[in-house]
Amino acid sequence: MLEARLEQAGVLKKVVDAIRDLVQDINFDCNDSGIALQAMDNSHVALVSMLLKSEGFSPYRLDRNIALGINLTSLTKVLRCAQNEDILTLKAEDTPDTLSLIFENAENDRISEYELKLMDIDQEHLGIPETEYAAAISMPSAEFQRICRDLIQLSDSVTIEASKEGVKFSCSGDIGSGSVTLRQQNNVDKPDLSTKIELTEPVTLTFSLKYLVNFCKASALSSVVTLSLSNEVPLLVEYAMGSGFVRFYLAPKIGE
């Protein structure tokens, strides 16, 4: 059986909010590392990979690996019944038909218990190769969100150009064109507001803004986002949490 207790229900709520517009039916793969998921969107353009590490739960008990087939719209409905500050316990049997979600308030005088019906989801898992990226840009997640939301007003796609001078996001559409350039800067007082660029070679790639705007729903999970790019490979957008991560992969657009 699985028993996993999370100090803050808000963490799972934010994770689900971040991915539920991209993927609908998913498996939570529970193993010794923690609770993981990997799923592609219907068009096979974007992939989400998430891990809530077992260390992030206290306790984390698992007798054997199990996959919990979940409809995220249904899970969202149940998670709405939890306060962000509630303690959340997930429980499931070894061959589960349902997932139990128990919410307790911090004062320990309210306990809510919900059962979510599980589904059989036949999910294809992709092998994501270890990649040495040519450029890794870490920046405030709110800044990345603002840039994507601004540029999508002008165009469907954005060209990201990373060089040692900085990172330039540019787009061009029917009404005109626009760009935002961020220079590398180190904010000593507030490291989360720094923009850092690690570069082995300059990179220029074009991506669909619709997906990037969607990924930015994970901004609530982390104040910092890391964009990893190499020419002609999918972009990696990572939101790191205290004990886990949400990663998005997006295939580039090619040709003009």
């Binding site: 096979h44 992709l126 092998g127 999918p234 295939a251 090619i254």
Partner: peptide, 14 residues
């Protein structure tokens, strides 16, 4: 316009 690539051309099925 640029063509949207599929992830399947980069990541193999496991």
């Amino acid at each position: 316009p640029a063509d949207q690539e599929s992830l399947l051309s980069y990541f193999g099925k496991r």
